[in-house]
């Protein structure tokens, strides 16, 4: 899923400063799962912003609403007739959600309240870990199910580097060395020989550099 974290409140306050009536828009999807933009987080942020406004004698109206998903038109249109009562929307969606809402309601500024982080896994209660780069060309097969691009600090496709020590990464000893994991997995499940040859350079054109990527599924289209 997509993970995110709330921006510092000072930054949020700065961004919403020019507006008098603000709708806080939570999202019940990925960002709710990582406890960044769900109903509860939206309520907390709204309350804090209202307090900040009162403290500073700002005559600001801050209200909250939650959508099941902010990145799908069918959910976003629920704001029709509501959104225009506000000067701005402070979205607790991921970057995709923020832009989707803005696209459908171009007349109202939509401000992000979150920093969208990465694609990852819920590693433990309250711990989310990046494990996919979304590169558009999955190589997990070759690497024993551990992505060296997402999980090796140096994105080595022919690792490990000289900093791997006791299974830990030199950049952050908390992080397991992805290459250690790759070698262990392939040792266990067979396929270590895949690492004997040099893995060719990555085709990054599938990831970025040509504007927004898109997926077209004609069988899904009307």
């Amino acid at each position: 899923m997509i993970t995110a974290e709330q921006k510092p409140i000072e930054e949020i306050r700065h961004m919403i400063m020019p507006y008098k009536k603000i709708l806080l828009l939570g999202c019940g999807s990925c960002v709710a799962e990582c406890a960044a933009g769900g109903e509860k987080e939206t309520a907390m942020l709204a309350s804090a912003l209202r307090m900040a406004a009162k403290m500073n004698r700002e005559d600001t109206l801050i209200q909250e609403k939650n959508l099941d998903r902010q990145c799908v038109r069918d959910f976003i249109v629920q704001l029709d007739g509501i959104i225009h009562l506000y000067d701005a929307v402070l979205s607790l969606g991921c970057g995709a959600g923020v832009q989707a809402v803005a696209e459908i309601f171009p007349e109202v500024p939509v401000i992000p309240a979150l920093n969208t982080e990465f694609l990852g896994q819920t590693k433990d209660q309250g711990l989310w870990l990046e494990n996919c780069l979304g590169c558009g060309d999955c190589v997990l097969y070759y690497f024993g199910g551990v992505c060296p691009l997402a999980r090796c600090s140096k994105q080595l496709m022919n690792g490990p580097c000289g900093g791997s020590r006791d299974g830990r990464c030199e950049v952050d000893p908390e992080t397991p060395c992805a290459w250690q994991l790759i070698i262990e997995n392939l040792t266990r499940t067979g396929g270590l020989e895949r690492l004997e040859s040099v893995f060719p350079p990555k085709d990054w054109s599938r990831k970025q550099g040509r504007g927004p990527r898109k997926i077209v599924r004609e069988d899904q289209q009307r």
């Binding site: 496709m157 690792g159 580097c161 060719p200």
Partner: peptide, 26 residues
């Protein structure tokens, strides 16, 4: 490969790592 950017005086730099040392050698 090079030491990771986080160790130096430009920790905010983007690490390129487009090729790895092996691919570069090749």
């Amino acid at each position: 490969s090079g030491d990771h950017q986080s160790f130096g005086n430009q920790p905010k730099a983007l690490g390129v790592f487009d090729l790895d040392s092996m691919q570069f050698l090749q």
